Amino acid sequence: MIRTRTDADFVDCVVLLRDVHESAGYPVNWPADPKDWLTPPDALGCWVVTVDGEVAGHVAVGAEDGRAFVERLFVDPQRGGRGLGRQLLDHAVEVAASEGLPLELEVADNCEAAIRLYAGAGWKELGRTPIDWGGDQASAVIHFSAPPS
């Protein structure tokens, strides 16, 4: 089930984010304030997916310059492979469509499972930008656009 994230979800979301960071390297650099990081300043909204009443993943959708962006998408590593990431991604597509905005996202090149998810969902790679903040984990950010609806 996908629902709007509440303040009561922050602890679970930060714990999951730490697990994802340690197991998959996302985010590449641990945020100084993970709770604050979960809500981008341009957020249209933030949602969680739950399994048996427990938070199992998170996504935010931001908007800027007439475009929407998938942000802060992650799923409990213990629940990977169950389609939860795809559900969150599809929800982001619905949110952007309801706002009449084209949807894009960026992902560091070290996030292999996420890259497979986006490619498998029909997202189109727009290009890559080299980064200097990825240390020995990531060397570029990959830009994707949502498939046509």
Rank of each mutant, 00 (worst) to 15 (best):
R86E: 06
T39P: 00
H58C: 05
L38T: 05
N29K: 04
D9Q: 06
K35H: 11
A43I: 10
K124C: 10
L105G: 09
Q87N: 00
V107Q: 14
A60W: 10
L16C: 06
D52M: 11
D36L: 03
A97E: 13
L126W: 10
E94T: 12
A146Q: 04
A138F: 09
R3Q: 05
V59A: 04
D12P: 11
R5Q: 08
G85R: 07
A97Q: 13
R86A: 11
E125Q: 14
Q78T: 15
A97V: 01
G45H: 13
D36P: 01
T50N: 01
A119V: 15
L17G: 00
V49R: 13
A119N: 05
P27S: 00
L73C: 03
P102N: 04
A121M: 03
G120D: 05
A60D: 03
D76Q: 06
P147E: 07
S23D: 07
I131F: 09
A138N: 04
R3W: 10
A24S: 15
G122F: 12
N29F: 09
W47H: 12
L126E: 14
D9W: 15
R86S: 10
T6A: 14
C13F: 14
G62T: 08
V28W: 00
V15D: 11
R82F: 10
R72I: 01
P130D: 14
Q87I: 05
E54G: 10
P31R: 03
G57P: 03
D33S: 06
P27R: 01
A140K: 10
A32M: 05
P130C: 08
L16Y: 12
N110E: 00
H91D: 06
D136V: 13
L103P: 12
V48T: 10
V51F: 02
R128Q: 07
